[in-house]
C-alpha cells in the first residue's frame, strides 16, 4: 500500500537542531558541499541552497563504494580459508539531496536486485534516509525534465524540503522510512499548507525538455550502425570520468589483492565501459575494440538497454558527465541528436 504524503512546516533553526542531533547520535550526515556530498561534522557547514548546481559527484559512493572488499581469504599450503565481510550498515542521512540524485538509488535497485540480490548494496541502502531539496536553478547541462524527472520531483526522497521563505521549509513526509525518521522530532513540526508549497513548486523555472526519450529509444534500436558514433569516438579520450561521477553508472570490476604472502581480499571496484580493456578478452579479442563502439554502448545502455530490461532510463539528467568531461562531450546534445 502506498504511503500517504504528509505536509509539515519546519523552521531552518529547528532543521539544523535536528541535524545536530543526527550527528550527535553518531550517524553519518551528508550534505552537498562544493565538489561533493561532504560528511557534515558541524551544522554550521550546512548551506541548504536550493539554487546550487549539482556537486561534481553524487553520493553513489556511499551505497556503492569506489573500492570495497567483498571477501577475505587466507592461504596455507594447499588450503584456503574464506572470511566474510561485515558490511558497515551505519545509518546515513543525506540532507538537501538534489532531485536529480534522489531517484538514483531507486534506479540502481533494479540492477542490484534482479536475479541475484547484492547484499552489500541492499544493506547500505536500507540504512539511507534521503531528505531531498527542491532545486531552483539549472545550467546548460541539466536535462532532468527530459528523462522523466524534474527539479521538484519527490521521487526517491523519504522527506522533501521546499523553501517557503528565508527561514522556513515545507517538509513533506514521503515514505514510511521518512516518517519513522522524523517521528522523534515531531516537536519541530507544524502542520503545513500543501497548496502554498505547491505554489512554490509551480513557480520554479524548469529546464526545457531537450528530447523525447521514447523517440531516442527507437532511434537507438535502428541506428546501431551510424556514422554519428564515429564522430564522437574521434574526440572522446576513453577515461571514466563520466561513469564515475554518474549517480547511476554501476559497472564494476572484481580483483584479488594480496596484502601478504598468505592473506588477501577480493575487491569490488568501480569500472568504466569507456576503458578499452573493459571488455578485452584474455585471448586478445575485444568486442568493443574502438572508442566509437564504447560510446555507443554508453548511450545505448542508458537510454535503451536499461529501459528494455528494467523499464527505467539509466540517467537522472544531472548533467555531471557533460559538465566534467575534459573534452566537453555533452550527453544531452548527443542524445538530442539521436534522430535523423
Amino acid at each position: 500500500m502506498s504511503f500517504k504524503m504528509e505536509e509539515k512546516i519546519i523552521s531552518k533553526d529547528d532543521l539544523l537542531k535536528l541535524c545536530g542531533d543526527v550527528i550527535a547520535k553518531g550517524h553519518t550526515l551528508l550534505a552537498p558541499g562544493i565538489a561533493e556530498y561532504e560528511q557534515v561534522k558541524d551544522v554550521s557547514q550546512i548551506r541548504l541552497d536550493s539554487s546550487a548546481l549539482p556537486t561534481k559527484t553524487s553520493y553513489k559512493s556511499y551505497v556503492f563504494p569506489k573500492a570495497e572488499p567483498i571477501l577475505y581469504y587466507k592461504r596455507s599450503k594447499s588450503d584456503v580459508q574464506l572470511i566474510d565481510v561485515d558490511v558497515n550498515g551505519k545509518k546515513i542521512v543525506v540532507l538537501g539531496a538534489k532531485p536529480c540524485d534522489t531517484n538514483s538509488i531507486n534506479i540502481l535497485k533494479h540492477l542490484f536486485n534482479w536475479d541475484y540480490e547484492d547484499e552489500f548494496f541492499n544493506l547500505r541502502q536500507k540504512h539511507f534516509v534521503i531528505i531531498g531539496l527542491m532545486c531552483s536553478s539549472f545550467d546548460e547541462y541539466c536535462f532532468c525534465t527530459s528523462v522523466g524527472s524534474s527539479p521538484v520531483s519527490e521521487e526517491g526522497s523519504d522527506l522533501f524540503l521546499i523553501p517557503i521563505n528565508e527561514d522556513k521549509f515545507a517538509l513533506r513526509i514521503i515514505t514510511e522510512k521518512g516518517k519513522e525518521f522524523i517521528e522523534p522530532y515531531s516537536e519541530f513540526l507544524k502542520d503545513g499548507d500543501e497548496a502554498k508549497s505547491n505554489a512554490v513548486l509551480e513557480s520554479i523555472k524548469k529546464p526545457e525538455v531537450a528530447f523525447d526519450s521514447k523517440q531516442v529509444h527507437e532511434w537507438l534500436g535502428d541506428n546501431f550502425e551510424n556514422p554519428k558514433w564515429e564522430g564522437i569516438g574521434n574526440v572522446c579520450l576513453s577515461c571514466a570520468q563520466c561513469a564515475f561521477v554518474c549517480p547511476v553508472c554501476h559497472c564494476f570490476d572484481l580483483v584479488d589483492e594480496d596484502y601478504s604472502y598468505s592473506e588477501g581480499r577480493r575487491m569490488k571496484n568501480w569500472d568504466g565501459c569507456q576503458f578499452g580493456h573493459f571488455t578485452l578478452h584474455a585471448s586478445g579479442h575485444n568486442p568493443r575494440d574502438i572508442q566509437s563502439k564504447r560510446y555507443r554502448q554508453r548511450v545505448n545502455h542508458k537510454f535503451r538497454y536499461y529501459v528494455d530490461k528494467f523499464g527505467e532510463i539509466l540517467c537522472t539528467g544531472c548533467g555531471r558527465c557533460s559538465r566534467g568531461c575534459p573534452v566537453s562531450i555533452d550527453i544531452k546534445e548527443i542524445v538530442s541528436n539521436c534522430k535523423d
Partner: peptide
C-alpha cells in the same frame, strides 16, 4: 582519487599504448 584516469587520458605525454596500471601480469 576515484581512478577514472582522466588525468592520463588528457595528457599528451601519457601516450603509452598500454599503461603500466592496466598490466595485470604481474599487477
Amino acid at each position: 582519487c576515484i581512478k577514472c584516469y582522466a588525468c592520463r587520458a588528457v595528457c599528451p605525454l601519457c601516450y603509452c599504448q598500454r599503461c603500466i596500471t592496466d598490466k595485470a601480469i604481474p599487477r
